[in-house]
Design a protein around this nucleic acid. Structure first.
Length: 395
DNA sequence: TCTGGGGTCCTAGGACCC
DNA sequence: TCTGGGGTCCTAGGACCC
């Protein structure tokens, strides 16, 4: 029997979640029905569109464009601030609810997932009914709407849920691909971004159908490995779509855009120490170790740089990570003013596979681990970081 | 008052080994 | 006294996703 995959996508998740919360608090309008967006704080230079209402979309407003530009397109646009705490809470509830229908759920982000329904007891027709049922039940229980794509491959389920929005169920079975997906602009295909779209248009490939029916070899020449992937997607093949997301915890990172460009080293260090402390805590909580440490930054003129170092031992000690991060800054930064700085740890390894390097002092490592764990426990207990490294408080 | 934050994967070039 | 070729590891940068 064929696979049956559902792709469930929350419509304008951040905006819907904020809308539901405002309504519960007695707000007099549903911001999903007016030109509105969820946007960051412009004064802090976080001023981009994080989510938009369907009405805002009609004005041509796009996710990730500047709020400044969005307001030019629609002067009466209403901007609401994000509430990440709320969003994580709503996301958790959503995925908890879905478990009721399949144990095989693959999260793609806070607001979308695949559900493998192949082994469910439902017959084919009943499965489609079930998709509608889930959609309605989510609305009844939580107050937000979803799109559900039903297909025999992940790529088709994903493309189906993206069709007409909001609050819809679409199917995209093999015999529907040519009629439903091929006429769409090639730009709409998953993994065709701005750059790929330009190159495809240049060689006369404008629709997904053009891509599906073109010569694979031409694609390979232009896109390398990715050419084959795109060709498969256009033909509705391939279930490796999410492989790169399945293997989780390849890296953790954090970054911060400053309100004003920063050129003072001690201020940069303060930010870095805080970031290393936060990520270190995350690693220890997940019992993961890293041996690949990087800093990333953007200069005032928006040029990105990164500097990475592989170290001979695995660690998740804030103290050790801090030392390397400071070295990386010293090696790469030449006193330019920065608008953004961040830290990334990759090549993450579970604790039980930790290998003690011949260069490391095992006893010292264990002692460090114990101190860190105690600090983490105290901070957990008081709900905040009352114990941080002394570094964090220096000027 | 331009341009967030957190991820994954790929590529190209250099170092180094045999 | 001319310069192989395969392989792996590491780093910096970039494309793409939500």
């Amino acid at each position: 029997m064929d696979k049956i995959i559902f792709h469930i996508d929350i419509n304008n998740a951040f905006l819907s979640w904020t809308a539901v919360k405002l309504l519960q608090e007695g707000y007099d309008k549903d911001i999903r029905t007016i030109p509105s967006i969820i946007g960051g704080d412009e004064e802090k230079r976080h001023g981009i569109v994080l989510a938009k209402s369907p009405v805002a979309k009609k004005y041509g407003i796009k996710t990730a464009e500047t709020i400044y530009s969005a307001k030019k397109k629609c002067p009466k646009l209403e901007v609401y601030p994000p509430d990440m705490g709320l969003y994580h809470h709503m996301s958790d509830q959503f995925f908890e609810y879905l478990k009721k229908y399949s144990p095989d759920i693959e999260k793609l982000s806070v607001d979308e997932c695949f559900m493998d329904m192949s082994h469910s007891k439902y017959l084919y027709d009943a499965l489609l009914q079930l998709a509608y049922h889930i959609k309605e039940e989510i609305y009844r229980l939580f107050g937000f709407t979803v799109n559900i794509g039903v297909a025999t491959s992940k790529i088709c389920a994903k493309m189906a849920s993206d069709m007409e929005k909001p609050n819809k169920v679409h199917t995209l079975f093999p015999d529907e691909i040519a009629r439903k997906m091929w006429p769409l602009p090639v730009d709409d295909l998953y993994m065709v971004g701005k750059n790929a779209a330009i190159k495809l248009h240049e060689i006369g490939i404008n629709s997904i159908g053009d891509l599906a029916n073109c010569d694979e070899k031409v694609l390979a020449k232009i896109f390398g490995k990715q050419g084959k992937v795109l060709w498969n997607y256009a033909n509705g093949h391939s279930d490796d779509l999410s492989n790169h997301r399945e293997t989780k915890n390849h890296s953790v990172s954090t970054s911060l855009t400053f309100s004003t460009d920063i050129g003072e080293k001690n201020k940069l260090l303060q930010t870095l120490y805080r970031q290393v402390d936060d990520l270190g805590k995350e690693l220890r909580k997940k019992k993961l170790y890293t041996d690949t440490i990087a800093i990333l930054y953007k200069t005032a003129d928006f040029v990105s740089y990164s500097k990475q170092l592989k170290i001979p031992t695995l660690t998740n000690s804030t103290e050790m990570l801090s030392k390397y991060v400071v070295n990386l800054l010293d090696q790469s930064w030449n006193d330019e003013k920065l608008r953004n700085i961040g830290v990334q740890f990759s090549n993450l390894t579970p604790v039980n596979r930790k290998q003690i390097s011949i260069f490391s002092d095992e006893q010292a490592d264990n002692r460090d681990d114990n101190i860190q764990n105690t600090v983490d426990k105290i901070n957990d207990h008081y709900g905040t970081s009352i114990i941080r490294q002394a570094n964090l408080f220096t000027k």
